[in-house]
Design a protein around this nucleic acid. Structure first.
Lengths: 192, 192
DNA sequence: TTTGTTTCTTAACAAATGTTATCGTACAAC
DNA sequence: GTTGTACGATAACATTTGTTAAGAAACAAA
């Protein structure tokens, strides 16, 4: 679970491997809600198998914010770190195997590693990279048309398009499933 | 310049105050481009007086990404930290007084402070908060109509609406200035 | 003062996108 | 098998938003 971190911080190998045992492994069916919008998150997740989407409700229709797949970790960061109600709902799309880290164990880990400057610097890198990811997504949302975003998605993350039901893709692109269907139809005709 | 940081990390007071001297103070007119899209950023900025916008070009029309005001720092973070071409252009809106930190001095500061765990933890907090800011902006962009975003802006950041030319506001909201004008007109009529 | 530039509004029209409804297919549950 | 449900395509129509153009007001430069 911490493979990439261990590769960068070999002196923490033993400790990080111990922390792996703090995770609880659960198997859940599709459409399981792991965290509901409005709840205060007490758990962080790591995906062994399956996929998850984070979404939010707006006037009854749900808007997908992000997808997650195998070997990725996620949480409702603001809620988890700051003990405030989550803006996002976290829900499995497929039957999944998830590793769950409870907040008290997270705090134990952070307390253990908080004195290690190499670890803290690595944390900064990770958070910085995540910030860049959101900025890029945001900019793409501002700048590109839905059709262009769909083409980007096809090119850059084809696994998402192949694996995720189309109406979730549409809500991720910020459009209705009807409109996505029109775009796909138009693209098909253009490519004969 | 580092007031809030000094308040949180009093043991670094002297050092942080010394670093202030590494900044170069410049006065520039309105519409000065401090960093142009495509350039690799070598400078980070802090605003003493005036305001700045970060924007990007898309098919000839510019899209405003963010506004900055007095006592705020900014950079094209990805470009500055990773030495890659900037996606954003950074440009003054008003005549401004800016404090400029060159990359070599930034690296000197980071090297000096990199052994201080309290400082690193504070960095994590700051980057984390910034990430949350972008996520919130992003979610608002996904979820709210242009009219709602304009009302949010009026309520939450009235200083922006008062101070910034309307066509920049429009491009920040993701709409044309014509459409923003329509929205304003409609809102006026609704409030008699 | 005159001139040019920027900013904002408004109108007419065009394009993009949403809404609602219907239909067909695939697939799982029974 | 039958049934129900999720998913996707399509059509007709409504709404939102963009485009282009024109003009007015504010303001700075000459």
């Amino acid at each position: 679970m911490f493979e990439s971190l261990i590769a960068k911080l070999p002196h923490l190998k033993q400790q990080l491997e111990e922390f792996t045992q703090l995770y609880e492994r659960i198997e859940v069916p599709a459409k399981t809600i792991l965290l509901r919008e409005g709840q205060v998150s007490k758990r962080s997740f790591f995906i062994e198998k399956g996929c998850i989407r984070a979404w939010l409700n707006h006037n009854g229709k749900d808007v997908t914010f992000q997808f997650f797949f195998e070997q990725e970790g996620l949480s409702s960061a603001e809620s988890f770190r700051k003990n405030i109600p989550s803006v996002l709902t976290i829900e499995t799309i497929e039957p999944s195997i998830i590793h769950v880290l409870h907040k008290k164990d997270y705090e134990y880990i952070m307390q253990k590693l908080g004195a290690d400057t190499a670890f803290l610097k690595e944390m900064i890198e990770i958070i910085f990279e995540r910030q860049l990811h959101y900025v890029k997504e945001f900019i793409s949302f501002i700048r590109d048309t839905p059709q262009q975003r769909y083409l980007n998605l096809l090119q850059q993350k084809p696994h998402i398009v192949q694996r995720i039901p189309q109406h979730y893709i549409a809500s991720y692109l910020g459009i209705t499933s009807v409109h996505l269907s029109r775009i796909r139809n138009k693209l098909m005709k253009e490519n004969k």
